[in-house]
């Protein structure tokens, strides 16, 4: 059942031009940045040769590329998630799902899984660029895997937050602005922590960036994974609760 909804969600995204445009724009910009980073690597290469314990091609080319990708997607994901539930509400087609013999959990998980399928396509396409490095050099496979996982978890968290905001309103724009606000807040929440002592570690723990950074550097810390999984389950739970509550209003 979850799969039926997920597939419909995935197909619907590609029936509208938005998904194609987003994929194309991201691919072009990041392709260009990949080239820029690669160029920098060639310039740095002679100096790196003389150092011991040097950063490899993965650190110099792929990690900054994915940092940039994360920032761009922070702005783009709300556009993808905004229509998910808000549009169905406005359209009246949410009734179709609620009248079918399904639980709210199945509906929300189906929606989320549909978004994750799109994320999988998106991240896999981005990862083709680092993988192309295998043609000329030998990047760190373990790090690439960690980066891939990091991107999936980060975008999973973006999707869950976006889905929740989309369930709060009938208006897509409000959903997009709202989820963009929350994502950005979670991004910059630790910027204060240098000067404010109290709650420093808490704010740092809340930051989306901190956890993503360690995965990008190839550090696989289970607390980072737990952070993302908690964030995803939390917001999916809130979405289910919100939709259930609406039947009572």
């Amino acid at each position: 059942m979850i799969w039926v909804i997920a597939r419909r969600e995935f197909v619907a995204m590609f029936q509208a031009p938005l998904a194609w445009v987003i994929l194309a724009v991201i691919q072009i910009i990041l392709g260009w940045m990949f080239l820029v980073n690669l160029d920098r690597f060639f310039q740095l290469q002679p100096q790196l040769m003389q150092l011991e314990n040097t950063p490899g091609v993965t650190d110099i080319v792929v990690t900054p590329l994915m940092q940039l990708a994360a920032i761009i997607l922070l702005m783009v994901m709300p556009l993808l998630t905004m229509r998910s539930i808000a549009d169905e509400k406005r359209n009246g087609s949410l009734t179709l799902l609620i009248s079918a013999p399904l639980g709210m959990t199945e509906i929300v998980l189906g929606k989320f899984l549909g978004l994750m399928l799109f994320v999988l396509v998106l991240v896999s396409m981005l990862m083709l660029m680092p993988l192309s490095l295998y043609l000329g050099t030998s990047p760190d496979g373990g790090k690439l895997l960690s980066i891939y996982l990091g991107m999936l978890l980060l975008l999973g968290a973006f999707s869950a937050i976006g889905l929740y905001l989309s369930s709060l309103t009938e208006n897509q724009t409000i959903a997009a602005v709202g989820s963009f606000g929350i994502l950005l807040m979670l991004w910059i929440v630790d910027w204060l922590s240098a000067s404010v002592d109290s709650g420093q570690s808490l704010l740092a723990y809340l930051s989306l960036l901190q956890h993503h950074q360690s995965l990008l550097e190839g550090v696989f810390d289970s607390s980072d994974i737990a952070y993302y999984l908690l964030l995803i389950t939390g917001f999916l739970g809130l979405t289910i609760r919100q939709l259930d509550r609406e039947r009572l209003l």
């Binding site: 359209n91 009246g92 087609s93 949410l94 009734t95 009248s99």
Partner: peptide
């Protein structure tokens, strides 16, 4: 329902 729950696309 009053407004048929259709997917236009």
């Amino acid at each position: 329902p009053e407004h048929p729950p259709l997917y236009r696309d």
